[in-house]
């Protein structure tokens, strides 16, 4: 903030405004990718990938996943989480590998990805 030139100081973002932690948080979270797992019945499980960057086409990623991991999956538009990719089975490791991989994958920063679940 302090390095900004004087005229920029009057930008619409008021640094001294009451911090609205909710909206501030969501913007941060948006570029953070969460890979989660959900248990289903029996030995089945479901992998969900949320927060993929908008520059990637979720549909294309999904088709790649389905083909590569030999699993079914679909994409869901969630109000809060945006586009969510759901995959059948536990694909967390594979998804993470793909997202991080620089050559064959998207080459994303692993720091921005969290893998949840046990």
């Amino acid at each position: 903030m302090s390095i900004q030139p004087a005229d920029r100081c009057f930008s619409p973002i008021d640094p001294f405004a009451e911090a609205d932690d909710d909206t501030g948080d969501i913007k941060k979270v948006e570029n953070h990718i969460h890979i989660r797992i959900q248990q289903r019945n029996g030995r089945k499980s479901l992998t969900t990938v949320t927060g993929l960057p908008a520059k990637f086409d979720p549909g294309k990623i999904l088709t790649f996943f389905r083909k590569e991991f030999a699993c079914n999956g679909n994409k869901v538009n969630d109000e809060k989480a945006g586009e969510v990719i759901q995959l059948q089975g536990d694909q967390r490791k594979k998804v993470l590998d793909f997202l991080v991989d620089k050559k064959a994958g998207l080459g994303l920063n692993p720091d921005n990805i969290t893998v949840h679940g046990a």
Partner: peptide, 8 residues
């Protein structure tokens, strides 16, 4: 909690 899919 994040997004949780509808199962079944």
């Amino acid at each position: 909690t994040g997004f949780s899919a509808q199962i079944g």
